[in-house]
Design a protein around this nucleic acid. Structure first.
Lengths: 238, 238
DNA sequence: TGTACATCAGTGAACGCGCGTTCACTGATGTAC
DNA sequence: TGTACATCAGTGAACGCGCGTTCACTGATGTAC
């Protein structure tokens, strides 16, 4: 059962329209927020697999079946959490990147990198939900263009398009595989294979760095991370 | 209860000494192997959280309590699987790296990278067990020098020590944090801060690339991966 | 080579716990006339 | 403004399933004399 098909009479499911909201609608929105809040606590404490509707009901002082008034199923709740996490991360990264001058590509790259790291360190459970091992038994929705999951990658692709203008792609010995190119071609961005491949590398490196740091395998100072971002900027051609 | 404290009368727990083994010891070793084999199947199908002693017993046609003859607890079984995975990965990487001439540092780096990737693609579940999100409710043993978990990093550190000879470290604007340096200092390896930081970066990038590829976010050809390894070799100073 | 004993593998039942989900229901809150 | 009705939130019980772990026990296999 998809969230969108949830047979609720209220169109405000998952969104707030506080101006036109009746008391009942506000109570309903509040209840959904409470459920999500407790679910996120469980996420932080025990991981995504431990998110349990019964435990949420217990915490809310409600009988377990009452949760189904607000959430169609456990899988849908997890989907909501994942969407929220994607949007929260994207909000943070977009805000940081928007504060940089457009022409300063290195500054934009650094701001993206730091924003991803800062958010991941602040919300490790949400980060694991997005970039960690998939939760067993849960099959998330497939990512489509325009999804919240594509907002952060879109920032990198826009940056790559600007990199292409400053430092155009060199010819590659072999053409790229289908996966990376379809992503670029779907957005019709003017990015050469070379720059695209470099982007793939620094992107992977960024998330590798953050993941290692989250596991406590390489907790270092911000200055060190910034230094590594600088090296990756060199890889990008900046 | 640690594996080492498991009160089994048999010293062959977890190891095979086939020459001096009695029939009972061989049957016992075989049973442990069967348990591990089925556990690894569960790992591959449903992830580490789904490893279940009852399901294993069911598969073996045995009552659930009988499993406790061979495995002290579920946590210990998971620990055994993790140790096996570390050793299997290290076997593969060490074999690949040993086939390269010592003086060809780039070839050694490429062999390590490809071996990690090949093994991860061949054994995705075991890879997730090692480098994925930790299993909820399971606290693995802390890594100590000489552990199976340190074999692969040791290969990189040895390579870095050789890189230091060829392309010595430049001074860094800031000293490194404690995490990376303690690892180097524990092994008393002659590696400068600069080379160590470069090693940290390419290491993170390698696992980032592999993790992305495993999630199906960037499945590309081997040639592309090799190309990225080449770029990382440049970062290393090769 | 035979016998007494110890050690082992595996059984069956049970404890106590958790989970997602359904369903008929009681009251309270809102809405239409 | 008051009343009849519809919609909602939440209850309580149940279904059916899973899990790790313990414990007293039966037979079979091994070992020591």
């Amino acid at each position: 059962v998809s969230i969108l098909q949830f047979p609720s009479g209220h169109p405000t499911f998952g969104h707030d329209r506080p101006m036109t909201a009746t008391p009942r609608q506000r109570a309903r929105a509040q209840a959904i927020e409470d459920i999500k809040r407790i679910a996120k606590q469980q996420l932080a404490l025990e991981g995504g697999a431990a998110v349990s509707l019964r435990a949420i009901a217990r915490e809310l002082g409600i009988v377990s079946s009452a949760v189904y008034r607000y959430v169609p199923s456990r899988d849908d709740l997890l989907t909501m959490l994942i969407i929220d996490a994607h949007n929260a991360l994207a909000d943070a990264v977009e805000a940081a990147e928007a504060g940089q001058p457009r022409h300063d590509l290195a500054a934009r790259w650094h701001s993206i990198g730091h924003a991803v790291r800062d958010w991941a360190l602040a919300w490790p459970a949400e980060y694991a939900l997005i970039h960690g091992t998939p939760i067993p038994g849960y099959q998330g929705p497939t990512t489509r263009p325009g999804d919240p999951a594509t907002r952060v990658p879109a920032l990198l692709l826009a940056l790559l398009a600007d990199v292409e203008k400053v430092a155009p792609s060199n010819p590659l010995p072999r053409p790229l595989g289908p996966h990376l190119t379809t992503l670029r071609d779907a957005l019709a961005l003017p990015i050469g294979d070379d720059v695209l491949a470099r982007g793939h590398l620094v992107w992977s490196a960024l998330f590798g760095l953050v993941s290692f740091e989250l596991r406590g395998r390489a907790q270092e100072h911000v200055a060190h991370f910034d230094h590594q971002l600088g090296r990756l900027a060199v890889v990008l051609g900046l």
